[in-house]
Design a protein around this nucleic acid. Sequence first.
DNA 1: TTAATATGAATGAAGG
DNA 2: CCTTCATTCATATTAA
Lengths: 235, 235
Amino acid sequence: MEQQQQVGGNGGNGGNEEQGGGGKTTSFVCRQSSTRWTPTSDQIRILKDLYYNSGVRSPTAEQIQRISAKLRQYGKIEGKNVFYWFQNHKARERQKKRFTSDHHHHLPIYSNFPNNINPGSSSAAGLLNGYGSVAMENSFRECSITPNANVGGQNLAWFGVDPYPSPYPFLEMSRSINDQTLLQTTEEEASEIETLPLFPMHGDAKQDWHHRGEDAIAAGSLELSLNPYAAGFRH
Amino acid sequence: MEQQQQVGGNGGNGGNEEQGGGGKTTSFVCRQSSTRWTPTSDQIRILKDLYYNSGVRSPTAEQIQRISAKLRQYGKIEGKNVFYWFQNHKARERQKKRFTSDHHHHLPIYSNFPNNINPGSSSAAGLLNGYGSVAMENSFRECSITPNANVGGQNLAWFGVDPYPSPYPFLEMSRSINDQTLLQTTEEEASEIETLPLFPMHGDAKQDWHHRGEDAIAAGSLELSLNPYAAGFRH
DNA sequence: TTAATATGAATGAAGG
DNA sequence: CCTTCATTCATATTAA
């Protein structure tokens, strides 16, 4: 299914600068006919800088205006793009944290401050995969996650989903300890699962998982260092 | 999030050395194909079981945690892998259906379905934009928008945020206006801000940017109860 | 090897 | 703010 890499002529690679192209260097057809905003690297750099180094998370309307106006120097952009960018960036940062080994929910809102906020060091944030600014390291278990099998009888209850062919088993999570028994019980029912007709998928030729270099720490997550009225001075 | 991807593409991809992000990368003793997650057949089996037999489509964060924890028995895996798996599986199933079965219910708008789109040929999307019929209509150049740059040292004040990596910005937001003023000088160059059309949103877009100005991060209420027995169950 | 295709990963937009 | 959808990019896999 879709994977039109080369379709765009520049296949998304060299084209990054499509918009701000300054000298137009090598770009030609700008197929980005899509309606969707395609941030240029400069725009992204600035956005991240604002996010990570200036602590901007939910810019106000005024700020959005200014930011987008500024970023317009580097390519087409609208206020809503800036708005969505911050929304998404923030939401995803949190989301990742949420389904990443998070054993802790209480997160000190304003705690550490990376003093090294080096302007221009936004780079840090730039390349990494984000993930865990606050999240610690779960970077162990890497190379040796022992497999071992027994895929046979699955116990879906384990996942917090109902194994029963119920109407729509929308998962009931938190189970109490008592349920443990239930889990055991369920196991039987789950037998059906193991006899599931596996869909003809690619066989397992792969026994070696790789490591995902993955994420580093997010450069510090500053906190609200934003001066709401800095701009307001004129108001 | 944001990482290399298309953005860093310059000249093909030679520039992507991400990985390094500052975190891991170092301790790769075993295999490193630090690329993407390659599910093992057991993992796939279970995922499909969940999808087709348990109706799981968009697992919650908690479920994702459980699922990934379980699947970890069969190979390296992270929460995001599970997350993406379900997202993609669902999206692609839907996408395929969009073509194969043309129930012409609503959405008469773009009925230009390619004749027989064989699954797999959706690639066409790249060209005919499949969907983007809309885009096709108004696809004009987007490719040429103001260039020029100077991203190096930026003037965050310009955005209405405090540029100084001040130690404790949150406490003293009201930084002397003097400084601000000074910086504000730059404003001249981008006078267009003032003339900026407030985000041109017609009825179609939402505009939320009105009531912001703070970020309450504490809002999150995760009760995340990692099933303790979950792990114990096996032992 | 190369071309194609399947699918993991990311992210702009929205919906709620 | 959280969740979902669509689209796109990148790469592993498989077919030619």
